[in-house]
Design a protein around this nucleic acid. Structure first.
Lengths: 169, 169
DNA sequence: AGCATAAACTTGTAAATGCAAATGTTACAT
DNA sequence: ATGTAACATTTGCATTTACAAGTTTATGCT
């Protein structure tokens, strides 16, 4: 029988919120918010990235990321430049200040990781992480279900039956 | 060596955001948001609760919960009453409409649970949930560290050395 | 080449969120 | 009794967030 309090999303959310809250307060004195930390950490680890890549990486919505990068730029943490190869895209990279903060805060993160991991057997850690990744991937199934009723996009226009009656507007 | 992308908080957040987003869209047509779903599910499972209890239960901040319950009340999903025994507290309970929605949406949740769980061996499921709960509890350690510098509250007044020199202010 | 479509962002805007201060109650220690 | 601290919740207010719509640049098709 289903119980909210033992369901996966519930347990996940509960843990996520609490860890996030704790870490957020921990790094608060650095002037960075949790989302900002995620950005600098991502950039530090992956090198320069496009806006959309960072958004995907950090699970932060694109428009939110756009503004976030804006304020981070004005804080001197990152830099924004158009890609010469594709003028639509924007390349974000860390300033030295941003990189310095990243290394500092990642040390804190390391400590958090240590504490969490100290509660677990080594094999449990690996299993846990592998499972989290596996479930993440499995969500494609549920993603697919969302649009199913009617098949969508495949069934919609089976080819224009009539050649565009009127120019739209 | 520490890597953001293999750290526990990162994997947790990523999965949590995605699952939340998917479920949120799934139940969207019911008129309930994800936080609202969590509230009705919690009430359905635990029976009437005080505002603070629901907040703790759902990992939603208290003031946010206050307003959320407000709009849910005006939607006819829940009821607010002062406790006769303690006029400070508020008892929230589901209306029949709220309960109906709860059962309906919990069926959807059940399905989500099924899909996730189908990716896992039975023993993995148990292990995973147990571990998530264990880590959650272990965070007390980190909670404690936050106020450590100076020990706080324990070291502050070792007993009034002088009997309140002056009435403060 | 020329036009429709898609990409990658940015911006408008309304709603959600969180912290701090305020309000109303109860519990405690004189 | 009675003032003070602790509680439970609400409200003020400044951000943050998300969804939709708008820009600008690339691609694809004919």
């Amino acid at each position: 029988m289903y119980r909210l309090t033992t369901s996966m999303p519930y347990l996940l959310n509960r843990l996520g919120v609490r860890m996030g809250g704790l870490f957020s307060r921990r790094i608060g004195s650095s002037g960075l918010s949790l989302p900002m930390y995620r950005v600098v950490a991502s950039l530090f680890e992956q090198g320069d990235q496009k806006l959309g890549e960072i958004a995907a990486m950090t699970s932060i919505e694109l428009s939110t990321m756009s503004r976030l990068i804006g304020s981070m730029a004005s804080m001197g943490l990152v830099t924004r430049k158009r890609l010469p190869s594709d003028e639509r895209a924007v390349r974000i990279n860390l300033t030295s200040k941003g990189a310095a903060l990243a290394t500092q805060l990642m040390r804190e993160a390391q400590h958090y990781e240590d504490v969490v991991v100290s509660m677990l057997e080594p094999h449990e850690i690996e299993t846990l992480k592998e499972i989290l990744a596996r479930i993440y991937g499995a969500l494609d199934i549920l993603e697919g279900e969302l649009v199913l009723p009617g098949d969508w996009k495949r069934s919609a226009p089976p080819g224009p039956v009539l050649p565009a009656q009127r120019p739209k507007k």
